[in-house]
Amino acid sequence: MNITVNVQLKQGVLDPQGKAVHHALGSLGFNNVNDVRIGKQIVLQMDEKEPEIARESAKKMCEELLANTVIEDYEIVVS
């Protein structure tokens, strides 16, 4: 089972990388971009058949390691 974890800075926490990329896109002529947020995608191949158990396990991983919940939100996608 594949679990995809998306980690991103929380809304309201300024994203310096996103800001720099937004600026660069503007200088390339892409003036139709309002905002850029950069995150991480972590793909876990899990030896687990129950989606809910896998999700619960991934949640613990996020809380303990994959995300820093002081500044980051995470999203878990089971596929």
Partner: peptide, 17 residues
Amino acid sequence: LLEMGLLPGAMKRNLNV
């Protein structure tokens, strides 16, 4: 120390990257 929770807060990339 921030990651361990022994001090409060977190670190982000420098503003100018």
